[in-house]
Design a protein around this nucleic acid. Sequence first.
RNA 1: GUCCCCGUCGUCUAGCCAGGUCCAGGACACCGGCCUUUCACGCCGGCAACGUGGGUUCAAAUCCCGCCGGGGACGCCA
Length: 465
Amino acid sequence: MNKIKTRFPPSPTGHLHLGGARTALFNWLFARHHGGLFVLRFEDTDRERSRQEYVDSIREALEWLGLYWDEGPYFQSQRLEIYREYARRLYEEGKAYYCECSPDELERKRKEALAAGRKPKYDGTCREKDLPPGPGRVLRLKIPPVGTTVVEDLIRGAVAFDHQELDDFILVRSDGTPTYQFAVVVDDLTMGITHVIRGDDHLSNTPKQILLYKALGAEPPKFAHVPMILGPDGTRLSKRHGALSILAYREEGYLPQALRNYLVRLGWSYGDQEIFTLEEMIEKFDLSRVSKSAARFDPEKFLALNAHWLRATPTEELAEEIKPFITKLGLPIPEKEYLLQALETVKPRARTLLEAAEMMRFYLVEEISYDPKAAQKFLTPEIVPVFERLLQELAKVEFEDEALEKLFRGLAEELGLKLKKIAQPVRVALTGKTVSPGLFEIMRILGRDRVLKRLKQALNYIKEA
RNA sequence: GUCCCCGUCGUCUAGCCAGGUCCAGGACACCGGCCUUUCACGCCGGCAACGUGGGUUCAAAUCCCGCCGGGGACGCCA
C-alpha cells in the first residue's frame, strides 16, 4: 500500500483566504490522519500576476494555522524543463498537436458560439493540420471525439462527462509556459500525489485532467471535490465579505485554533460535536463525512468559536499572544504576574484578543478617563461620603476578594444601601466605565495604591464638577 | 446558452446510502428566566427547517421523476 500524499497548490496571485485555508486544512488533515505526506506547491505559471509578496503571506498564514508541509514548497516556475519534456513526449506520440489560431480569432469564435447558444469550445481548426512547433503556436491535447469520461469522486460518487462537452484544451502557451491544466497533472503525477482534495469549482476540469493522465499513460489520483465556501449572502466569497486574507483575522485577534475549528466544521461534521482540538480533528477527519452542498461563511459563529477558544486556552499562553495587541493600542506591557491576573479577569468576557486588550485598558493606564455618561450618573455628590469612608477603610483592609467583599457588604448594610449603589460608583472611579470584571477582583489586582489614588481622583472630579 | 454539482431551522449541520424509533436532534444568532456588584461566563427554557409537485409504499426528510431555486465550469487564469 502506497503512502498517502496530498497537496495544497495555491497560486501566488493573492492572499490565502477562507476557501483556500479550508482546502489546505482538509488536505493536511487527510494526510495526517492517514500518516501520509502533505506537499506545498506554488502554481506560479502566470508570470504576470504571481508575486513574491503573496508567496510569503501564504506561507505565513499556513504556518500560523499550524499547517506545516512535509515537502516543498515547490514552484512551477522552476520546473519548466519537466513540463517541456512531457509536452515533447505528448507531441511526438501524436497525443497533442500544435495550433496556430490567434487569440483574437479564438475570442471571436467564442463570442459567436455563446451568442448562438452553443457551447464555446475550440473548433479543432488545427487538429489535423499536423503543424510543427513554431513561434506563436500553442500545444493542444487531442481529446477522443467520442466517449465518456467518468470522474469517480470520493465525495460525489461517479460523475460522467460526454467528450462532446470537452475541447482540445491548451497544454503549452505560445510563450512556452505550461497552462494550469497541464502543470497540475504533470506535478501531481511526478510528485506522487495520491489524493487530490480541492474545491468543487474544479469538478468540471477533472475529466480533461483524467484524459491527460491517460494520454500520458498514467493512472490518475483519487479525486475529492469539497463544496465551496460562499459569503454570508450566498454569493462567491470576495473582498466584499470582510477580511480577504487569513492574516487579517490574526490582526483582529482571532486564534488559529478557533479558525481551524470553524473551518473544519464548514462542510464536515462528526455527529453533534462542535468543538475539536487539533488532535481530535486529525483522529476523526475523513472524506466520507464531508457534505456536498456549499456553505456560507458566518462571521457570528466564527466569533463565538473564537470566544470559546479564548476561554479554553491557558492564560499563560494567551498572555504572550496578547502583547502585540496591547502595544497596538498604545498601552504599556506590564510585568508578567500583573498581566496574567488582569487577563484572567477579561478572558471570559472578550471574544477576541483585541477586545481583551481593550478591556484591560484600565489596568494599564495610570490616569483613567471617565466615560461621560457613567461619570454623570455615578460620580455625584451623594457618593462623596461613601468614598471618603471607603478611603479610610481601604487603607487598612486586606486586599483579597473575600475581605473586600465583606467590607463592601458591611458598609452597604450599615448605610442601608444596596451593594450596587456603592459598587457601581466605585467601578466607575476605578475603570471609568459601568461595565468591567468583578469589582473585588479588579481591586485586588489593581492593588491598594492605585485604588486609593483613583478614589481620590474621583472625589476631586466630583468636587470640580 | 450548454454541461456539471447542490437543495433539512436565518446560518453551520445530524438524520438520508440500509423507509417506520423524526409532529426532525445539536450548535451559532435571537427571545425569556436563573445566578448576580455591572458586563460576561455558566445553567434552564423558548422560537425556528425537510424548496415544490407528482409517483412508489401500510408508511418518505429518507427511494424515483418533473419543476423551481442556488452554485460552478465552459480562458494562451488558477
